[in-house]
Design a protein around this nucleic acid. Structure first.
Lengths: 212, 212
DNA sequence: CGCAACCGACAGGTTGTCGGTCTATGGTTA
DNA sequence: TAACCATAGACCGACAACCTGTCGGTTGCG
């Protein structure tokens, strides 16, 4: 008894399974067999919907990133909230994202998931950085920030946070705090923000996250 | 007629072949068969010297990075050259490295070489960043730079240049120039350098490289 | 003669392909 | 209205071709 579904539905089903598996076993560690066994479809079906394993990864990342970007865009657009607060909100939502995305995010940094990591990073640069940069520009027009290159400054900050706060960089609590302080110091310099104007609210955020 | 060589010699031979293959076909695109056929040894021999394919990659990166770091260290130590000039020299040597390393560097950024890229990046952060940071500190004591976090600022700069100036980021010449300008602007801000003090000599370097 | 270096067959796993099969749907006919 | 195809999109699973890593056995050198 073969079950037939609409293409889009099957595709999502496959992406769901893949996301969960990639999140727990990593991209390299997950075989296409794992995926198709998990949902009980045949090999041919998988390759009917996706042209390769990497294509599945791309699809998954696109889906997660679409959600992330949409959410970030919505938050960023709420002009009733002060700019700095909004930036914090967006950043917070990047890492504490709910749903399958969160699990994926955690595993992204492991060395065996290099490809996944790279693709995510690219996505982050292409989609999230511009959103944050818009906020920075808003801050500039309000006299909070001062820089001639808001987009690039944002990219630098985002990229560095992405790489340095990886789990792979296992470091003692003391080192971690030092790194975070340095990061905020540099971020303020890049954005031309007043000393402490970012650091203070950000440190709060980091401490919240640490407790989990 | 079986040829026997000293372990270290064979190891180097394998690393040489691997480097060349990885450089032309990428890490994923190169099979262990390719490597052992290239030098005419048997499967068992390869795995006698290296415990896995990834182990070969690690060995290769370590070798390249060792050379790079040694060269950079030597250049950085020459106190007869002004600090800014020395920084330029070190950076120049990172990308224009001679020998097999150069070919590898070119291919490192392709998407299929994600693992290679990541390992290289890690190496860069761990070994090269401190060397450059030392130079920055020297600059600080000379009043050229002003920052409380020389190491982290250096890391940010290095990381960003690594990612953004990848070939994968194919962009028009105009965009490229704009990005470079923004990069230098941000680097100066991070290091607390006078406007143009880095940008001017750096632009020269970029233009040289462009001509090749 | 002993040990380090080497060999190559082989197990177990992987991705992607391909010809063939099913099933839902919509048009046709009685 | 009901029975009857026809067809295309969704699905299947065997299979080819590869790939990595292992292991018992072999050989040459000191």
């Amino acid at each position: 008894m073969r079950i037939v579904k609409e293409a889009q539905e099957r595709k999502n089903e496959i992406l769901d399974a893949a996301a969960e598996l990639f999140a727990t076993k990593g991209y390299d560690g997950t075989s296409t067999n794992d995926i198709l066994e998990k949902i009980g479809i045949a090999r041919g079906t998988l390759y009917y919907h996706f042209k390769s394993k990497e294509d599945i990864l791309d699809g998954m990342i696109e889906r997660i990133n679409g959600l992330l970007a949409a959410k970030a865009g919505k938050l960023a657009g709420d002009k009733s909230i002060p700019v700095v607060e909004r930036i914090l909100l967006v950043v917070k939502n990047l890492n504490v994202d709910s749903g399958i995305g969160a699990e994926v995010m955690k595993q992204v940094h492991k060395p065996q998931n290099a490809l996944m990591h790279q693709k995510m990073q690219q996505s982050l640069m292409d989609e999230i950085a511009p959103i944050l940069a818009k906020l920075v520009e808003e801050g500039i027009s309000q006299g909070i920030f001062h820089t001639q290159c808001p987009l690039e400054a944002t990219e630098m900050i985002l990229l560095y946070s992405e790489v340095v706060f990886d789990d792979q960089f296992q470091q003692s609590g003391e080192q971690q705090v030092k790194r975070i302080r340095a990061f905020l110091y540099n971020a303020e310099k890049l954005l031309g923000a007043e000393s402490g104007s970012l650091a203070e609210p950000m440190m709060k955020l980091f401490q919240e996250r640490k407790q989990r």
